[in-house]
Simulated scan of single mutants.
Amino acid sequence: MVKPHFSFWIIAGLGLIWNLMGCLNFITQLSAEAVAEMPELYQQIIEMRPLWATLVFGVAVFGGAAGCALLLLRARVAVAVLLGSLIAIVLTTIQTSMAVGMTTSTTVALLVGAALFWYSTIAARVGWLRSK
């Protein structure tokens, strides 16, 4: 197994922080009081979101956090977990776009999710990740 470049640790760590903020956002959205204090657009997104989309949003952020934690542990399964997270991000983006149009936050989430998955495939290919 090849020793990862120092940037691997930075990217995986920042990815974990990003997704943990997404997890906090998900948990915050479960509170009616917290939602009432959000900007109107975010309130609309949350109120118009069906249950399946809320569950998919949870998979996106918690899966992303797990995938980045697995990257930091150098586990090859991180690639599959981050792919699952990316699929959930795409579904969440589609639902949000249909409800209120494309937003900056959904675009950024989609780009970050895609970048993390792509980076994990590179890490696996160059031998930075363990197969077990």
Results as ranks from 00 to 15, higher is better:
Leu41Asp: 07
Leu24Ile: 15
Leu70Phe: 12
Gly13Ser: 15
His5Val: 13
Gly22Ala: 05
Tyr42Ser: 13
Leu71Ala: 08
Thr96His: 00
Val2Glu: 14
Ala12Trp: 02
Asn25Asp: 15
Leu16Gln: 11
Gly127Asn: 11
Gln95Arg: 13
Trp118Cys: 06
Gly15Ala: 09
Arg125Glu: 11
Gly15Lys: 05
Thr28Ser: 10
Thr106Trp: 00
Pro50Lys: 06
Ser31Asp: 09
Ala78Arg: 06
Ser131Ala: 05
Ala115Ser: 15
Ala32Val: 13
Lys132Met: 12
Leu71Trp: 07
Ala99Cys: 02
Leu110Gln: 02
Gln95Met: 14
Ser105Lys: 03
Thr92His: 13
Ser120Pro: 06
Val59Leu: 07
Gly127Met: 09
Val61Ile: 13
Arg74Trp: 03
Gly22Tyr: 00
Ala34Gln: 15
Ser31Gly: 03
Glu40Tyr: 12
Ser131Val: 04
Val59Lys: 01
Ala99Lys: 00
Leu51Gln: 11
Ile27Asp: 12
Ile46Ala: 09
Phe117Arg: 08
Leu116Val: 05
Leu83Phe: 15
Pro39Met: 07
Phe62Thr: 13
Val77Phe: 09
Glu47Pro: 03
Trp52Ser: 01
Met98Ser: 10
Phe62Asn: 06
Met38Gly: 11
Gly63His: 02
Ala99Phe: 00
Cys68Thr: 12
Thr104Pro: 04
Leu20Pro: 10
Val112Ala: 07
Val2Asp: 10
Asn25Tyr: 08
Ala53Asp: 01
Thr106Gln: 02
His5Phe: 14
Phe8Trp: 02
Ser85Val: 04
Lys3Asp: 12
Val126Asp: 04
Val112Lys: 05
Ala78Asp: 08
Ser120Tyr: 01
Ala88Gln: 05
Ile122Glu: 04
Thr54Gln: 05
Met98Pro: 04
Leu110Ala: 03
Val35Ser: 12
Val59Glu: 01
Ser120Phe: 01
Phe62Arg: 06
Thr93Phe: 02
Leu14Lys: 08
Trp128Gly: 03
Thr121Ile: 11
Leu110Asp: 00
Phe6Glu: 12
Ser7Cys: 09
Phe62Ala: 14
Thr28Phe: 01
Val108Ser: 11
Ala99Asn: 08
Val56Leu: 04
Gly101Phe: 01
Val90Met: 07
Leu16Tyr: 06
Gln44Leu: 12
Ile11Asn: 03
Val2Asn: 14
Ala109Ile: 02
Ala123Arg: 02
Thr96Val: 10
Ala36Met: 09
Ala80Phe: 13
Ala60Tyr: 00
Leu91Tyr: 06
Ala60Lys: 01
Pro39Leu: 08
Phe6Gly: 06
Met21Gly: 15
Val77Ala: 15
Val61Gly: 08
Leu110Ser: 05
Leu14Ser: 13
Val79Gln: 03
Gly15Ser: 13
Leu70Tyr: 06
Gly67Pro: 00
Gln44Asn: 15
Ile87Ala: 14
Leu111Asp: 09
Val59Asp: 02
Ala88Asn: 07
Ala69Asp: 12
Leu86Arg: 11
Cys23Val: 15
Ala80Asp: 11
Ser85Asp: 03
Ala99Tyr: 00
Leu51Arg: 10
Gly127Glu: 12
Val126Lys: 07
Met102Asp: 14
Thr106Tyr: 00
Leu51Thr: 14
Thr103Tyr: 02
Leu24Arg: 14
Phe26Asn: 14
Gly67Tyr: 00
Ala66Lys: 01
Phe117Met: 05
Gly101Gln: 03
